[in-house]
Design a protein around this nucleic acid. Structure first.
Length: 630
RNA sequence: GCCGGAGUAGCUCAGCUGGUAGAGCACCUGAUUUGUAAUCAGGCGGCCGUCGGUUCGAGUCCGACCUCCGGCUCCA
């Protein structure tokens, strides 16, 4: 048989030859260094047979940054971890141990819980294995044999019973694990393996199942890569908004109100910049700003359907005979507002916007600074429209998203998820084809990366969620656009159609920033605190060289009144105040002393670049950076 | 909510086996009048997360709770 190599040359091999055979046929060095074979783009264990006509690419330990090559290295590393743990804790039950984004984990069911300090012992055992060296062999067995073999391993047994395809085993030393593979030939390519932490994790990700102990680790093809990775993590931590926020005095947290930020004036400058933009654009795009109560009798939540599903997350206030709930969302309020008038089809679409304070009683363990808060505001809106208007409304929202992502320079951070028709859908496939297709086209039009979550839409319509990653690569849901065909009915929203009959309007629910708090958190991390000029809390700082220049500095600050300007009083050396301005991440610093005048200002940009500009030139430089120009 | 880790000055952290709390930065005062990332000297500053227990004595040991961090679950 023949296989095709990356340079398009053909390689003649005996029938049934494996990836490793192919590597041997090319050269002994390659065979020694090979870790994985990619067949027609899919990765495959080196030991598995190739088929005639396959296009193959052999990956070696030199492909140290290739995601697939890293994954196989880490998968094998997970097995080394499992071997070590099994030796140290013979009674442990093994669950699963896959490679993940930046490393790997293995889930164990320990008889005695283990602690972080036990990791050292386990790490030493893994290091010993690496020093000794391990080779992996693969073996395929029948399902029955597997059941017998893992009779004492409840988790493995469950995997055997639910696995698709053949059952395979990988053995290294005296340790054998049920595993689909692929794996390395031997442990030589693992040049760096570090266990990074322990955590609880539910078996099969279900909180009704027992909680297992997950040990995390990471591994690389070189020491330097591990060090680079750890350094990158350290840098990412420095960008964490929970660190930057208090450090830059933008917001603080208090244990007296977990999950709710205390915003400073500087933080509010950012918050208000978002709000100003939101208001301006909403007005421009035909939204009406409304305001509805923060607190509602829980009867409303029962009627809207939220009580049953989200009652747990509702903050409640007892009041006489009634119980009130702090609103976790604006929808029902907007619907009640809609109901205050008889509506005609001629009134539609009606677009209500409100960025009210929302409260959700999130589990303590899930709170995370601004990105997962108990109190936050969404740039929320509900568009009441007829079926015919849905398309244009959704298109308008995508234009809006497009605009926002450019304005904030976060487009490359974002990706979307299109949730499509579920099994229990309402309506015909044709209708779904139509709405899903419209969303898909809209996504492609604005060029956003997206993934399709098949069957995860609500039964009344598909939805789009927008996500962004934080500094540590964790994805957060930001905006959402979803079609709601349920609540308007529950809350009795109607309009008179041209046919002189009552109809229930469609409601398109949307938040584009998502939560303003979360958005600011992501922005801070994205920019590492170096916010664009128009968002910077202090845009210009004037530094008088000495007392003698204070008056002139104040005067200059006044001339720059269109911007957020402050003065660095001459209580310290100029060098120290410049350093402070850098640490405060202020975009422009103007030093003013004997040498300066309106004709010649010493302007320093964040990062250190200096220039000599007249006041007029400086104004000309800064004005285009104002939000009105965004 | 669950598993693991942590909570000491405004911030970053030190405080060994229990003997009564310390540094740097910040802040304040004084001197210096400063030219593009840290001038010098002095001073102020602590319910050692909270509550309870053990002990002659607890920042240190034990328990409960709260909060934060890493995960898991959840996330309208």
């Amino acid at each position: 048989m023949k296989v095709v190599l990356p340079d398009n040359s053909e390689l003649e091999l005996p029938a049934g030859a494996s990836g490793l055979d192919a590597a041997r046929a090319i050269g002994p060095k390659l065979a020694e260094q090979a870790v994985l074979v990619r067949v027609d783009g899919r990765v495959q264990d080196l030991r598995l047979p190739l088929a005639d006509g396959d296009t193959i690419q052999l990956l070696t330990m030199r492909d140290r940054e290739d995601p697939d090559a890293l994954a196989v290295l880490r998968h094998s590393s997970a097995h080394l971890l499992a071997e070590a743990v099994t030796r140290l804790y013979p009674d442990v039950k093994l669950a699963i141990g896959p490679p993940i984004e930046n490393g790997f984990y293995y889930d164990f069911d320990f008889v005695e819980p283990i602690r972080e300090e036990d990791l050292d012992k386990i790490q030493a055992e893994v290091d010993r294995e690496l020093a000794e060296g391990r080779e992996w062999t693969r073996q395929e067995i029948s399902r029955d044999e597997a059941r017998e073999m893992f009779a004492d391993d409840p988790y493995k047994l469950e995997l055997v019973d639910t696995a698709e395809g053949d059952i395979s085993l990988y053995t290294q030393g005296d340790f054998t694990d049920l595993c689909r593979g692929p794996h390395l030939q031997d442990s030589k390519p693992i040049k760096a393996l570090k266990l990074t932490g322990v955590a609880g994790a539910y078996w099969r990700g279900d909180s009704n199942n027992p909680q297992l102990t997950r040990i995390y680790g990471t591994a690389f093809y070189s020491r330097e890569d591990l060090e680079a990775h750890l350094e990158k993590l350290e840098l990412a931590r420095a960008r964490d908004h929970r660190r930057l926020g208090p450090q830059l005095d933008l917001f603080h947290m208090s244990e007296y109100s977990p999950g709710s930020a205390l915003w400073t004036a500087k933080g509010m400058a950012i918050y208000n910049a978002l709000e100003d933009l939101r208001r301006r654009e909403n007005a421009r795009r035909g939204y009406s700003e409304v305001k509805t109560p923060l607190m509602w009798d829980v009867e409303l939540w029962k009627r809207s359907g939220h009580w049953e599903k989200y009652g747990e997350n509702l903050f409640r206030i007892e009041h006489g005979e009634s119980t009130y709930g702090l609103k976790p969302m604006n929808c029902p309020g907007h619907m009640l507002l809609f109901n205050t008038q008889l509506r005609s089809y001629r009134d539609l679409p009606i677009r209500y916007a409100e960025a009210a304070v929302l409260h959700r009683d999130e589990p303590t363990g899930s709170l995370q600074g601004l990105t997962r808060a108990r109190q936050f505001s969404q740039d929320d809106a509900h568009v009441f429209c007829t079926e015919d208007q849905i398309q244009q409304e959704i298109d308008g929202m995508f234009d809006y998203v497009d605009f926002l992502y450019d304005a904030f320079g976060v487009r490359e951070l974002a990706h979307a998820e299109l949730a499509t028709r579920p099994d229990n859908k309402l309506g015909t496939d044709e209708q779904w084809d139509h709405t899903e297709g419209a969303l898909r086209r809209a996504l492609e039009r604005i060029g956003l990366r997206y993934r399709v979550a098949e069957g995860e839409g609500a039964f009344y319509g598909p939805k789009i969620d927008f996500f962004m990653d934080d500094a540590l690569g964790r994805p957060w849901q930001m905006g959402t656009i979803q079609l709601d065909g349920q609540q308007p009915e529950r809350l009795g929203c109607t309009y008179m159609g041209s046919d002189n009959r009552e109809h229930t309007p469609y409601v398109v629910h949307r938040a584009l920033f998502g939560s303003l708090e979360r958005f600011i958190g992501i922005l801070l991390e994205h920019y590492g605190g170096d916010l664009p000029f128009w968002l910077a809390p202090v845009q210009v700082r004037v530094l008088p060289v000495g007392e003698a220049h204070l008056e002139a500095a104040r005067d200059l600050a006044g001339r720059l009144g269109a911007f957020r300007v402050d003065i660095g009083e001459p209580t310290e050396t100029i060098g120290k105040r410049i350093r402070a301005a850098e640490l405060d991440k202020i975009p422009f610093t103007v030093v003013y002393g004997d040498r300066e005048s309106e004709q010649s200002l010493a302007v320093r940009e964040r990062g250190g670049e200096q220039s000599e500009l007249s006041l007029a030139e400086l104004l000309a430089r800064l004005t285009p950076l104002l939000p009105s120009e965004v």
